[in-house]
Design a protein around this nucleic acid. Structure first.
Length: 137
DNA sequence: GCCAACGTTGGC
DNA sequence: GCCAACGTTGGC
């Protein structure tokens, strides 16, 4: 099963807010990057991903899960961009920082390292397992 | 706050 | 359809 990584600035939308939105989850709106949009279109309900804090924190802080397939964003008049709905699954007992990820040879090929500006990205099975372990899950 | 990397826009 | 100019993101 594919895995993903969602980036968010905690000032805009934090892990705590994601947790607070509970079972209903959150519509991951506002993405305006074609590649990120494409990734979300490919997602299936039940697929899990990491929740990453950019700028402030710079760490993987939790695990989220897709609970609703991609739908068009009502705020995008062309209907091209959209988003999935995700809910918080569990917090990382220990956040995995970007510095740790960069220092780890096993994670050198991560999109997060290679293309840090992509806001929704795929994570390989090996990377997924590795980061979960680093985070104490 | 700076700047590199990336995407998008618009003139030709 | 190319590419220079510009805006934005995000790490440092």
């Amino acid at each position: 099963m594919p895995h993903w990584l969602y980036k968010s600035e905690p000032d805009t939308w934090s892990w705590d807010q994601q947790v607070a939105s509970g079972e209903a989850g959150t519509y991951w709106e506002g993405v305006r990057n074609p590649l990120a949009n494409m990734h979300m279109k490919a997602m299936q309900v039940g697929e899990q991903g990491f929740f990453y804090h950019s700028n402030e924190g710079k760490a993987v802080v939790g695990v989220v899960e897709v609970i609703k397939l991609w739908t068009p964003d009502p705020n995008d008049e062309k209907g091209k961009f959209g988003a999935v709905t995700i809910r918080a699954v569990e917090a990382m007992p220990r956040p995995v920082t970007l510095a740790e990820i960069k220092a780890d040879p096993a994670l050198a090929e991560m999109v997060l390292v290679k293309n840090s500006r992509l806001s929704v990205q795929p994570v390989s099975d090996a990377e997924w397992d590795h980061i979960r372990r680093l985070g104490g899950l």
